[in-house]
Structures are given as structure tokens and as C-alpha cells.
């Protein structure tokens, strides 16, 4: 609770900076217009005009908020102008991909922990994959799947899946390995089978690691879904809103889509964090 005041101060400072930057970046256009019309503008007049331009270089925070309000609450959610509609398109691809990626990731991690040949073959590649920009494959997956007749939700979900896959594998292997030797020996003295060791010791012990990677994974999934929407020619989804906004110079639309993506990311990470806290508390591992 101590941190509330500092956080609010920092947020207020960011908004103040944003307004300042909006005045500074947008004033050129106002001055140009005034010079063309041959009139002098006072500074207060300039500030007023920078706040409400149609296509500002940097929309002021209240413009973005108004656009968000207009496109989420006032539009029908089936409308193509509704951000709820586009957000849902992106969210469904994110969630489907996240589920696939996490499921496969956990399965592979279980295999790696129990099979040395698998570990030695796959693990170096899984770690190396974190250093390369695998998202570069996204446009190809979209186009190739499109050419074999698969389009819509699934190609984006595949991109989301492979982006969340590797963090989950690496984190989960670490987690399944986290029980100390003494605990493993204790299980052996109880004559526990491998399955029992897995279900009663390794899996519970891996939870903190799993949730840490899930947070990384869901954020990566969302980025994957957004980037996956770019090559299809900007039809639906938050990524499409970003791209069409940049085609037509609709800065307010870009910023509103960006904010919507940020809110979505924050909500997703927040939900994973909440599940983490509840789970760890019920397991008696809460910090």
C-alpha cells in the first residue's frame, strides 16, 4: 500500500509529459495553418487547437480515451468499428494459441525431465530458440496456411502457440527439476514410483516456475496474435486496426487500438497472476 502514492505520481508525470509532447508535436500544424491563413495565434490558442485535431501527430490522452469510449461502449459489439469486436478476434486467437502452446510445452517438459536422450537432444535447441526472433516466421505461416485453405483463427493461434511454447518448456523443465536431492531421496525411501514422484513432488514443486513462464507466455501470445494479423491485409483484429490506421494516417485510431492491446495484455497477465496467487496460497507456498 505504501507504493500507491509513488505509482500515482509516476503515472501523473507520464500523463503530464504526454500532454506536453502533444502540444509540442502538434503545434507545428497549427502554426502552419495560421501562417497560411495569415493570422497570428496566441500561445493559449495554439494549446487549445493542439488538443482537438482530427489527425494529430500525437493525440492527447483525452482524445484517445474518448475514441476508446466511443468504439467500445457506444458502438454495437458486432459493428466493424467496435474495438470490442476486434479485441475479441485477437483475444480468441491469443487464448487458443496460449492453450495449445502451454499444453504442448508442459508435455515436452515432462518428457525432457524423464528421458535423458530427449533432454540432451531438445533442450539446447529450446534454450537457443529464446535468443532468435522466431516471430519472423509469422507472415510465412499465415500465407502458407492460407494457400492450403486454412485461414481465420487457426493460423494466428499457431503463431501464438509457438511463441508461448518455448518459455513454458524452459520454465517447466526448471520447475520439475527444482525439488532437492533430499526430497527425492525421501520419496525413494517411501518406495514411491516414478509416477508418484511426479504427481506428488515434481509437479507441485514446479508451480511457481510454471506461473512465471505463463506470464511471459501469455504476453508473447498476444504479441503473436497481433503480428499474425498484419500480413492478411488488415481485415479484423487489433493488429489490423493498427495497420489500417497507419495506412490512412488515423493516429487516434492507432492509439486507441494500442491502448486496447495494452489493456488486454494487462488484464491477461493480471488474471494469470491472480490464479498464481490463489494456487500458491492454497498450496501453502504464498510469499
Amino acid at each position: 500500500m505504501k507504493s500507491v502514492l509513488p505509482i500515482l505520481t509516476v503515472v501523473a508525470a507520464i500523463i503530464a509529459l504526454w500532454y506536453g509532447a502533444a502540444v509540442w508535436l502538434n503545434s507545428k500544424w497549427v502554426y502552419d495553418q495560421a501562417a497560411r491563413a495569415g493570422v497570428e495565434v496566441s500561445f493559449t490558442e495554439v494549446v487549445k487547437q493542439t488538443m482537438n485535431q482530427e489527425r494529430p501527430k500525437l493525440p492527447a490522452p483525452h482524445q484517445v480515451a474518448a475514441e476508446l469510449w466511443k468504439t467500445t461502449v457506444e458502438k454495437k459489439i458486432t459493428s466493424k468499428r467496435s474495438l470490442v469486436f476486434h479485441g475479441w478476434i485477437t483475444l480468441s486467437a491469443t487464448l487458443l494459441g496460449f492453450a495449445i502452446g502451454t499444453g504442448l510445452g508442459i508435455l515436452l517438459a515432462v518428457g525432457i525431465v524423464h528421458n535423458r536422450a530427449m533432454e540432451m537432444s531438445v533442450m539446447p535447441w529450446a534454450i537457443a530458440s529464446q535468443t532468435i526472433p522466431i516471430i519472423a516466421i509469422a507472415p510465412m505461416i499465415i500465407v502458407v496456411l492460407n494457400s492450403v485453405g486454412i485461414q481465420g483463427l487457426l493460423p494466428k493461434a499457431i503463431i501464438s502457440a509457438y511463441l508461448s511454447f518455448f518459455p513454458v518448456v524452459v520454465g517447466m523443465v526448471k520447475g520439475l527439476r527444482s525439488p532437492q536431492v533430499m526430497l527425492l531421496d525421501q520419496m525413494k525411501t517411501w518406495n514411491a514410483s516414478r509416477a508418484q514422484i511426479f504427481w506428488k513432488l515434481r509437479l507441485p514443486a514446479s508451480m511457481p516456475y510454471l506461473f512465471a513462464s505463463l506470464k511471459v507466455g501469455i504476453a508473447a501470445s498476444l504479441v503473436g496474435a497481433i503480428v499474425g494479423e498484419l500480413p492478411t491485409g488488415a481485415i479484423r483484429g487489433l493488429g489490423a486496426r493498427l495497420l489500417s490506421g497507419s495506412y490512412y494516417g488515423q493516429t487516434v485510431q492507432i492509439w486507441a487500438a494500442l491502448m486496447a492491446a495494452a489493456i488486454l495484455a494487462a488484464a491477461l497477465v493480471g488474471i494469470v497472476g491472480l490464479i498464481q496467487r490463489i494456487t500458491l496460497r492454497r498450496m501453502g507456498m504464498a510469499q
Binding site: P6, I7, V11, I14, A219, V223, I226, T251, L258, A266
Partner: peptide, 28 residues
């Protein structure tokens, strides 16, 4: 004071899809 404020905000922003600022940067 600033650290207590900036650390959570920074952590929060680090989780956002900042890649979405690309069209804005291209415009600027």
C-alpha cells in the same frame, strides 16, 4: 520515492505489447 513508483510501472509496461507502437514510430 521515484523507485517505488517507477518499478511497478516499468514492470507493467514491460509486459505490454510495445511492438504496437511501430506504426506510430514509422509516422514520426
Amino acid at each position: 520515492f521515484l523507485q517505488r513508483g517507477l518499478l511497478p510501472v516499468g514492470n507493467f509496461i514491460a509486459a505490454l505489447p510495445i511492438i504496437g507502437t511501430a506504426p506510430i514510430m514509422v509516422m514520426w
